[in-house]
Amino acid sequence: MNFTENDIRRITFETINELGSNAAPDVVKEAVRKKVEASTTAPFDAVKKDSISGRVILTSFGLNKPGIVAAITTALGNANCDIQDLSQKILVDFFTMIMIVDITNSKKDLKEIQEEMYKTAASLNIKIYLQHEDVFRYMHRV
């Protein structure tokens, strides 16, 4: 991703110098390809890891009925998510629940957990939103 033609040219020259008299075109090509691959895969892994870790905020609301909290916590538990905080209110027939959930140790990434929770929401006929904590921190904390 970050490679420009100049980078590749530089790597090629380095490789030719390293190989010295063994620098046949095929050998150089193979060596350069390996070097490029090695350095492009590393940062991509780091980015991927970042996107699946951290705390997310789960907001759910809808008409109150039995089994909502059970359904949500079961789904989170199955995904190995850690509920760190929970706040819940019922206003007449409506319930609202906000959770802070740590998904760092989950086998699933945020996207998979979101899909799972949206299914749960559909079956209970309520709304569930899952958003990374950063967006709340950025918007409400100076």
Binding site: I57, T59, D85, S87, K89, T96, I98, I100, Y129, Q131, V135, F136, M139, H140
Partner: peptide, 12 residues
Amino acid sequence: MNYDFSEILETI
């Protein structure tokens, strides 16, 4: 909780 109910609902 680190965030108020109202803050979270405002974002939503």
